[in-house]
């Protein structure tokens, strides 16, 4: 799966790496409209690979749930995660996703109780489990607890479990799969890679090569 996030001025679920990336993108004139163009280009270039869009609620609310989800669907994304529209307020969004033919994804955390997990999973394309109680890209505590939690959640819900928040290495991804996750998201780590490359060289070819090797380092054997 690929995950794309649209930059937002007030990303309250994100840690420093993604905040800074959103700030850079907005300062350089990125817009939701250009985000959708990028989304479509990515979907076209890798058909068959699921594409999850992560976007904050106000960007969806501003354009309108139905118009936004229609545009997501036309751009070729398969699922939508809006981290600040939780279960209780998600009904209109879920309806819009269904209508547009895309999956809706719910966020769960280390403290989400069992019965609530089941309600989150209902009608959800997958459950996006935050491994740590906190914001993205920042680790609180050991990974063993995270893996235990993955196994627990995977045993409770009927939909795939996606592990995110604070993942940065291939061994973590492998152990997440071993614990029962079907998807693992590496976000802040790759954003930091981009930031470093961007600072050290303005050259697009260098940036792409460096990013490619960082991604391959996560997925392939050395």
């Amino acid at each position: 799966m690929r995950e794309i996030g649209f930059p937002y001025s007030d990303p309250i679920a994100d840690g420093p790496a993604i905040q800074a990336a959103a700030g850079r993108a907005l300062a350089r004139g990125t817009s939701t409209r250009r985000g959708f163009e990028l989304l479509a280009a990515i979907a076209d270039s890798c058909p068959g690979i699921p594409l999850n869009l992560l976007v904050y609620g106000n960007l969806v609310h501003r354009i309108g749930y139905e118009r936004f989800t229609d545009t997501v669907s036309q751009a070729g994304a398969s699922t939508l995660l809006v981290p600040d529209i939780p279960l209780e307020e998600a009904r209109p969004l879920r309806r819009a996703c269904r209508r547009a033919g895309i999956g809706h994804v719910e966020l769960a955390g280390p403290l989400t109780p069992g019965p609530r997990l089941n309600r989150l999973a209902e009608d959800s394309a997958f459950v996006y489990l935050a491994g740590f109680q906190g914001v993205t890209g920042v680790r609180h505590g050991g990974f063993t607890t995270v893996l235990r939690r993955v196994t627990e959640v995977a045993g409770k819900v009927d939909v795939p479990v996606c592990l995110g928040f604070g993942l940065s290495g291939r061994d973590q991804i492998e152990s997440a799969f071993g614990a029962g996750a079907r998807i693992a998201v590496v976000g802040s780590h790759l954003v930091r890679v981009v930031e470093r490359l961007y600072r050290s060289s303005g050259d697009a070819a260098d940036l792409l090569a460096g990013y490619r090797s960082a991604v391959l380092g996560l997925t392939a054997e050395e």
Partner: peptide, 20 residues
């Protein structure tokens, strides 16, 4: 909104991790 509404305003539009 489903919780804490003032007409069409209010609610709890916060990430699941803050729900507890």
């Amino acid at each position: 909104p489903r919780q804490g509404a003032f007409g069409s305003f209010g609610g709890r539009f916060a990430p699941e991790l803050l729900t507890p």
